[in-house]
Nucleic acid binder design. Structure first.
Length: 892
RNA sequence: GGGCGCAUAGCUCAGUUGGUUCAGAGCACCUGCCUUACAAGCAGGGGGUCGUAGGUUCGAAUCCUUCUGCGCCCACCA
């Protein structure tokens, strides 16, 4: 067999992925098997593969492949999300830079045409990249949240919620992004500490030029929107002021001084200007005191004429702020300016400072949707892994505000609400919510009694839905559950597990759960596996803006998909952030190479009917017995790991089983000496076992396992690793496992001695065993002597009833061994080591005896634990006896 | 301000119900090997009082409390 010593991944990956896909292994249709279903967290259509996606999708692929190997009907639905704000921003930039077109110069229809052009050209690259990773998605089911059917579902849901009274249009204080000119959800606002200026400004009494009250504000330009000054009713400094009137600086509009408990006596000056249109708290205070609302800001953040101060009208809020300093100084209202550290909210998308703003928006009534979604998680109807994310979920669900689902964008599902053109904008009294304009017209005719109304008399809402108001329908809509509620969704829903980062637990996870119960009366998934964030070595979240994310495709090139998958999985316990280190992918690549070379070894053997040496046969049979038993033991723990989503543990267990037990021990035991053949039985079992190992590892490292699986032996068409049955644990011979483990310990001890005394690797030495029942038990297994001889490079094993003189002796387990190393032994050193060991064993014995002397321990500990302590005591006693004898006989 | 979580080897982290050799893995480090599968490798080794102080228990890395040092989420004071 002519195989390179290095495993070459690139060609293998491309070949097998194409083969799997062409064989239809990825696609799923309902049948009588148990389904195992995952819907992908749809990445932004604009996205390119990054570390987070790779982690996420590796986990999903592992689960899907495992389910497929378990004989389930595995269905993994891929797709992308239209990501309204992010995509629209990209398209706007693209138009500006490439096409030299400004969005403002386009009609809605023109813009959308360009947007679809852009999407067709640049969108969905990520799905292509996922194939490189090995993701075994059912590509025929690929869904995009703006697909016709999906789009319609969003509209249908909007209408449905409106009719049920769970959706309303209302005036609310929202987070406004003046740059994108759209409302933002709370989750899209990022707060961070920044230094800003605190302006102390004096408001003079209405009828007094001398006396005034000083307020503190960071936004002096908003004073034109002030409608009151509030003080705490319990603040003695200001008690006499309550009820008086003061004048807004510069424009001299009189406003009252009111009392409200909200005002913090200790903060600022203890007097607070009230600006209901531009601050959420002020808005609430304004409501309490029935104060008017003056909105002085335009949508783009410039001041409008309502501020009543001509010099600043039309200026940007920050420019206005800069000028206010001079103006207030000159007019004598400015008391002082202080530097001040505060949290400033910025738009996640545009980084513009967010402006609180009153606005007419559409809201979903969360009080209606949240309770069943909360209950499902608390009752563990939906299980979280790790479980403690329940806390996060709970606190959020118990403190919900209504969900603002309208966005002032064009890229998205347009809100299906129509108004009468005759009514002024934002003051509409008639609202018609319907699937189509025609239906809306029908409603309008009925509502107004005017049969002559036409479509021309109607105006559709300009806004689109929040992206999450489409992605929350994902698990239902991808199976066409709205239009065909009795169709295949009945087979696939609820899905099996959702794999996603914990950062979108609110955006997406919670809302999907709500949608599941609201629209299907059933949870959308049985379990949620939360992945951590992938961070760099400085613990920073990996992001494009920081440029600290390694190029995902380059990683795949350098280490192979299997290597990268290994790297990601080997340090990613559910929910824990992982500090990504390329070194881990290197481990994965090395592991591939190890497997590859094991294949080269095995395939290089000559096979004979049987071996000439009886010793070889005995040894090989023992090796096979041990390997079978150990594999069963490992499979048992693997099943437990999979059941509780402990995937890293499962991978690690396989890694050490393959590398250590299979390669370092098993193959070394059965490896024939140079140019000698191996007996057919052992060979066949080994090929079989090797194949099973590949199947067991396949979910984690699909490509190399498929390749090796096929190279191990001729496979009939369709006999691919990906569609085998996962090996199952059987009852196994624990005794063999135990005794071989003891033998391994003995071999290690012998190698240690050989190393210490620099015995040549090939030089075979005779081993002496001091006769004892435990030694007889160990060597009683057929093939055990031959096994130890081979791996420890021994010429023979001799039994001693008496200690031979002047020979190196050592302990392993409770047995004593002698090794004739043909060298002068350093007795001084030996004595020291023996004494050290003896001291340790005596201390150990003492602690065990103390334990056993404790009546309460013996009475309350489980019998097995007590029994084990007794065994430990016996072993310790045996060791101490041997050590004492050896010491006594040691030449001085 | 409210809440959640973390602290285990030089580094990154496992450690499930308190009890089998539980004090682990990988990396790094040290020693010796290019031994006919693999130097992307082989054989061997050193290294931790499980953050601190108490408590519960026959028994604590594991449960409770304190303190210290980190991290995160939510809310947000003009």
């Amino acid at each position: 067999m002519d195989l390179s010593t290095r495993y070459a991944h690139a060609e293998v990956e491309a070949r097998w992925y194409a083969h799997w896909e062409a064989s239809g292994y990825f696609s799923s249709v309902p049948d009588d098997r148990e389904p195992f279903v995952i819907v992908i967290p749809p990445p932004n259509v604009t996205g390119v593969l990054h570390m987070g996606h790779m982690l996420n999708n590796t986990i999903q692929d592992i689960l899907i492949r495992k389910a497929r190997l378990d004989g389930k009907n595995a269905c993994w639905v891929p797709g992308t999300d239209h990501a309204s704000i992010a995509t629209e921003a990209k398209v706007v930039r693209w138009l500006r830079d490439e096409k030299k077109i400004r969005k403002a110069d386009l009609t809605r229809e023109q813009f959308l045409e360009y947007a679809y052009q852009w999407k067709d050209k640049y969108g969905g690259i990520i799905l292509q990249q996922l194939r490189r990773l090995g993701a075994s998605c059912d590509w025929s089911r690929t869904t995009f949240t703006m697909d016709k059917g999906y789009y319609e579902d969003c509209i249908r849901v909007f209408v449905d919620l409106y009719r049920k009274g769970k959706l309303y249009r209302g005036l609310r204080m929202v987070n406004w992004d003046p740059e994108a000119r759209t409302v933002l959800s709370n989750e899209e606002v990022i707060y961070s500490a920044e230094t800003s200026q605190m302006y102390h400004i004096r408001y003079f009494l209405e009828d007094n030029e001398e006396e005034g009250i000083v307020i503190a504000t960071q936004r002096p330009e908003t004073i034109f929107a002030d409608v009151a000054v509030a003080v705490n009713p319990n603040d003695p400094r200001y008690r006499s002021w309550i009820g008086k009137r003061v004048r807004v600086p510069l424009i001299n509009r009189p406003i009252p001084v009111i009392a409200d408990e909200y005002v913090d006596v200790a903060f600022g000056t203890g007097a607070l200007k009230i600006t209901p249109a531009h601050d959420p708290n002020d808005y609430e205070i304004g409501q309490r005191h029935q104060l008017p609302i003056i909105d002085i800001l335009n949508d783009d953040g410039t001041l409008n004429e309502r501020c009543a101060y001509a010099p600043l009208v039309g200026l940007d809020r920050f420019e206005a702020r800069r000028r206010m300093q001079k103006i207030l100084e000159t007019s004598g209202h400015l008391v002082k300016i202080e530097s001040y550290e505060t949290n400033i909210g910025r738009s996640e998308r545009t980084n513009a400072v967010v402006e609180p703003k009153l606005s007419l928006q559409w809201f979903v009534r969360m009080s209606e949707l949240a309770p069943p979604a909360l209950k499902a998680v608390l009752d563990r109807e939906i299980r979280f892994y790790p479980e403690n994310f329940q806390n996060l979920y709970r606190t959020w669900m118990e403190n919900l505000r209504d969900w603002c689902i309208s966005r002032q964008l064009w890229w998205g599902q347009r809100i299906p609400a129509w108004y009468l053109k005759a009514e002024p904008r934002n003051e509409e009294t008639h609202i018609f919510v319907a699937m189509t304009a025609e239906e809306a017209l029908q409603q309008a005719r009925e509502a107004t009694g005017n049969k002559h109304l036409t479509l021309d008399d109607l105006r559709q809402d300009e806004d689109v839905l929040d992206t999450w108001a489409s992605s929350w329908l994902w698990p239902i809509s991808v199976f066409d559950g709205f239009r065909q509620p009795e169709g295949e969704i009945r087979y696939y829903y609820p899905t099996s597990v959702l794999v996603t980062g914990w950062d979108i637990i609110f955006f997406w996870v919670a809302r999907m759960i709500m949608a599941g119960y609201e629209f299907r009366g059933e949870k959308p998934f049985r379990a949620v596996y939360f992945t951590g964030m992938v961070r760099d070595k400085q613990r920073r979240k990996m992001s494009k803006s920081l440029g600290n994310s390694p190029d995902a495709l380059k990683l795949l090139d350098d280490y192979g998909a299997d290597g990268v998958r290994y790297g990601l999985m080997s340090s990613a316990a559910a929910g824990n952030d992982i500090l990504f280190d390329e070194k881990l992918c290197e481990n994965g690549r090395n592991f591939c190479n190890k497997i590859w070379n094991a294949l080269r070894l095995v395939k290089g053997w000559k096979v004979a009917e049987t071996s000439e040496e009886e010793a070889d046969l005995l040894r090989n049979r023992l090796a096979v017995r041990w390997m079978r038993a150990k594999f069963s033991q490992v499979l048992q723990s693997l099943e437990e790991d999979f059941a509780s989503f402990r995937l890293s543990e499962a991978l690690l267990a396989l890694y050490s089983f393959i590398w250590d037990d299979f390669c370092s021990w098993y193959l070394e035991i059965i490896k024939p000496s140079f140019d000698k053949p191996i007996d057919r039985d052992t060979y066949k079992v080994t090929i079989q076992l090797f194949g099973e190992l590949m199947v067991a590892l396949h979910p984690f490292m699909p490509f190399i396992t498929e390749e090796v699986w096929h190279r191990l032996s001729e496979r009939a068409p369709g006999q691919d690793c990906i569609v085998q049955r996962y090996p199952k644990a059987t009852t196994f011979d624990e005794d063999v496992v135990r005794r071989v483990e003891a033998a391994k310990a003995l071999i290690t001890r012998i190698r240690e001695v050989r190393n210490e005394y620099q015995v040549k690797p090939r030089e075979a030495l005779p081993l002496g065993v001091q006769d004892s029942p435990s030694a007889r038990t160990l060597f009683g297994l057929p093939g055990m002597k031959e096994l130890v001889c081979k791996l420890a490079v021994l010429s023979k094993v001799e039994w001693h009833t008496q200690e031979p003189p002047n020979i190196k002796s050592f302990l392993s387990g409770t047995e004593k061994y002698f090794l004739d190393i043909q060298q002068q032994i350093d007795y001084h050193k030996e004595r020291l080591k023996l004494q050290q060991e003896l001291d340790y064993q005596r201390g150990f014995l003492k602690s065990i005896e103390a334990k056993l002397a404790n009546e309460r321990f013996v009475a309350s500990a489980p019998a097995a634990v007590v029994e084990n302590e007794r065994k430990k005591r016996a072993d310790a006693l045996a060791r101490i006896q041997i050590l004492e004898e050896t010491l006594a006989k040691l030449p001085t």
